[in-house]
Amino acid sequence: MEHGKTTTIKLILGLQSITSGKVIINGYDIEKDFTNAIKKVGAIVENPDMYMYLSGYQNLKLVANLYKNINNERIDDVVKLVKLEKRIKDKVSKYSLGMRQRLGIAQAILHKPNLLILDEPTNGLDPEGIKEMRELLKVLASKEKMAILISSHNLAELDNFCNKVSIIKNGNIIETSEISKIKQEASKELKLFKVDNVIIAKKIIDKIEIIDNNNFKLNIPEEEVPEIINKLVENGIKIYEVKKEEKTLEDAFFEKTGGNIIE
């Protein structure tokens, strides 16, 4: 199902015409002042489509030609940053998908953009590739001071990568905030208890939700926790552990979207 991730990116980059609303990058309207708006933006849309018959270096050189002040040293630096030094003179047609993805990032950051837009950057990468990508993006964000916009449906990945998320459902943004906040909100009231006997506990407090022989869940605000503990102790139940439930982004996502099928 198309929820509009790629479309959103295309709208931002001026690859698709905007029917209503505005895209403003660095203070310039993408429709009215395209060249200024796009000047400090780097992007990979969908796949990292590079010129297959050229070498990685030639591909970068083509991009460098189109901007002012990109010298060969900058190209070398970027190649080192994306760890392609060894294969940069090879034809792109011989690259693996992960290498192409990194070359795509290299061409996108060559002109030191302050906004880097990536469409599913880990799509088709192996676990090692994903790890490398994550590290690379962290370096870019911290050292090169880029804002990075990633679209993805891989929530575990975003959980690792991002500070802030927007959830899009059927083309509408239903939530935009810090990841930690979203997770926090979703797990606000849920507490997990580990005890020796849940059956007895159930008799004392009937609101509890049994998970297995030793664990149960309870939906109560923080202030009520001591009271519950007291009750359990009074009835001779041994408490091994009490903790707040740590929700993943995925849980939060389903909570927000109502568990709809995602694209």
Binding site: L13, G14, L15, F34, T35, N36, I38, K39, V41, A43, V45, E46, N47, D49, M50, Y51, M52, V63, L66, Y67, Q107
Partner: peptide, 13 residues
């Protein structure tokens, strides 16, 4: 081949 996107997101009309 999709490489047109490379060109179209460069600062040229």
């Amino acid at each position: 081949k999709g490489t047109i996107k490379l060109l179209l997101v460069k600062p040229y009309t």
